[in-house]
């Protein structure tokens, strides 16, 4: 099993559900188990559309191509099914849920993974929550706050990382998780990813980012450049360095051509 890829994207085309303009023009990508991939690209290149299409956001629609996740057709599944089969999306803009504590939220999410007649063991849950928060250097009182309600940008991203650590996905999509973060918050995110990757060598990541700076802290195995709704270049970490030096300009003709 371990040599079959966790995710295979073939010729994926996609658009915003209410509009006719295609944004993804045939994306091909394969992610192996335990691999860390980064997709870099300028604004409007389709990076976030790719993340939302993969996770099943109702505002986005795949119009052609296929996505195989864990041997199943991902595009046929509802967002909750995708989550339950091991996909996780760390949001670019996490949503506020007033009145619902992070602990309660996580408990509900974990309970949803169990069979109907099975009850989550609350003591195990509490132990797990505390140990995950310790791993991520978080104050235990953080879990008592309402989900993202009045959080700073950095706190919202920490919350995403905590959820990822609790739900233990097989593949985590990180949609510009680094945008708008100061260096301290960036390091928290990077620390979380690195800690989880180290703990579970089978876990895969797809890190979507505009900037190279997150990749100073997380070392990707593969870097892809996305421009104009396609992946125009794939390579090792050196691609990120190349981008840092010359910017996206040099990739644009390839997209046009």
């Amino acid at each position: 099993m371990s040599d079959t890829p966790i995710l295979t994207i073939r010729n994926l085309h996609g658009k915003v559900a209410d509009e006719d303009i295609e944004i993804l023009h045939g994306v091909d990508l394969e992610i192996g188990r335990g691999e860390i991939h980064a997709i870099m690209g300028p604004n409007g290149s389709g990076k976030s559309t790719l993340a939302k299409t993969l996770s099943g956001h109702p505002g986005y629609e795949a119009t052609d191509g296929e996505v195989i996740f864990e041997g199943e057709d991902l595009l046929e599944q509802e967002p909750d099914e995708r989550s339950q089969s091991g996909l996780f999306l760390a949001f670019q803009y996490p949503v506020e849920i007033p009145g619902v504590s992070i602990a309660n939220f996580l408990r509900t999410a974990l309970q949803a993974r169990l069979d109907e007649d099975e009850e989550l063991d609350l003591f195990d849950f509490q132990d797990q929550l505390l140990s995950r928060m310790e791993l991520l250097d978080m104050d235990p009182t953080f879990a008592e706050r309402a989900v993202n309600d009045g959080f700073s940008g950095g706190e919202k991203k920490r919350n995403e990382i905590l959820q990822m650590a609790m739900l233990q996905p097989k593949l985590a999509l990180m949609d510009e998780t680094d945008s708008g973060l100061d260096i301290d918050a960036l390091q928290v995110v990077a620390h979380g990813v690195n800690a989880l990757a180290k703990e579970n060598p089978e876990m895969s990541f797809l890190i979507i980012t505009h900037y190279q700076r997150l990749l100073n802290y997380i070392r990707p195995d593969h870097v892809h450049v996305m421009v104009g709704g396609r992946i125009v270049r794939s390579g090792g970490p050196e691609v990120a360095e190349e981008l840092e030096a010359s910017g996206y300009e040099s990739f644009k003709p390839a997209a046009a051509g």
Binding site: S55, G56, H57, P58, E78, P79, D80, R82, S83, Q84, F88, L89, F91, P94, V95, I97, F105, T108, A109, A112, R113, Q163, L167
Partner: peptide, 8 residues
Amino acid sequence: FYLMSRGM
């Protein structure tokens, strides 16, 4: 969508 993407 946020909650569903967590499996609910």
